[in-house]
Simulated assay, not measured.
Amino acid sequence: MSNPETLYDKIWRRHEVAKSDDGSALIYIDRHLVHEVTSPQAFEKLELDGRKVRRPDATLAVPDHNVPTTDRSQKIADPLSKKQIDLLRDNVKRWNIELYDMLDSRQGIVHVIGPEQGFTQPGLTLVCGDSHTSTHGAFGALAFGIGTSEVEHVLVTQTLTLKKSRNMRVTVNGILPKGVTAKDMALAIIGKIGTAGATGHVIEFTGDAVRSLSMEGRMTLCNMSIEAGGRAG
């Protein structure tokens, strides 16, 4: 009989392409979300090196960090914000990557549109150039944030070289009192283990209180895994 595995263990094992002697592994990435802030340098380096996007169909782009919160039909006032969004449009057009642009009804916060549009799926690996990509863990995906150089690496190879994190189980039992939310739960956990308490770990949440949460609540809990120092949740 094989050893018991956490969900993290199972997803990791099923996405291992190769192992190295130093303990790292080449992990296949199923889905890649890109936005206007961390992608411009990645696309530029890709062009300079004469490389191509390996799987445009596995990448979804959306502007979200620099999008006006009022009238989107007006021009973006900040020149840097405008340039970043213009570059995103140019880059995804160049590489035939689907874009939910500012006036698209599907546009929204990158960690919300993934689940909304079915791009986020259980059992998949998903990355984005944003630390709170762990939000997608609420849907049973292994999701985590990456840096700009890693964004380029995923665009070109659809893989990442990673060292496996340790498992951490957080159990919250009982019934949440009226007015107590998932964010309160997350803050209580962080208050107990500290802002670095989950460093080097992927957190899996369990217990009656966790099971009672809505999907939005579970997204909040996974989102705030990062505030506890976790790699994902």
Rank of each mutant, 00 (worst) to 15 (best):
L88D: 06
P56H: 13
L99G: 02
D57Y: 07
R55S: 11
T159P: 00
I29N: 01
G123R: 00
D86C: 09
D71P: 11
S2W: 09
L124E: 11
G191H: 10
L187D: 07
G230T: 09
A143R: 01
D208S: 14
K93H: 10
T59M: 10
E47V: 06
L187E: 08
L103K: 05
I175A: 12
R211P: 00
N223K: 13
V34A: 07
I203D: 00
S214L: 01
V112Y: 10
I85L: 09
A186W: 00
H111T: 15
Q74R: 08
G129Y: 02
D90T: 14
L213F: 00
T70I: 12
G123W: 01
A198L: 04
I193F: 06
L155S: 02
D208T: 15
C128H: 03
L26F: 05
E44R: 15
Q158D: 11
K163Q: 03
H153D: 07
P122G: 07
V110Q: 02
K93A: 14
R14S: 12
H201Y: 06
H15K: 04
G179R: 13
A25W: 01
K82Q: 05
F144G: 00
Y100E: 06
C128E: 09
S39W: 10
V127L: 02
M219Q: 12
S134Y: 07
G50H: 11
A138I: 04
W12E: 03
V202M: 02
L124S: 06
P79R: 15
P177T: 08
A58I: 09
G108Y: 03
S105E: 09
L99M: 06
P177R: 12
N66V: 10
G137A: 03
K192P: 00
E36R: 09
P122W: 04
R211K: 12
M168A: 11
T157C: 00
L46N: 05
I189R: 02
L48C: 14
P79Y: 13
S73P: 14
V127Y: 00
R14F: 09
E152S: 07
M224F: 13
S165D: 09
Q41N: 12
G137E: 01
A77F: 13
T171G: 00
V53F: 01
T135L: 05
L103D: 15
T199Y: 05
T120F: 03
V170H: 03
F139H: 10
D64T: 15
V37Q: 09
V17T: 11
G23K: 11
I193M: 07
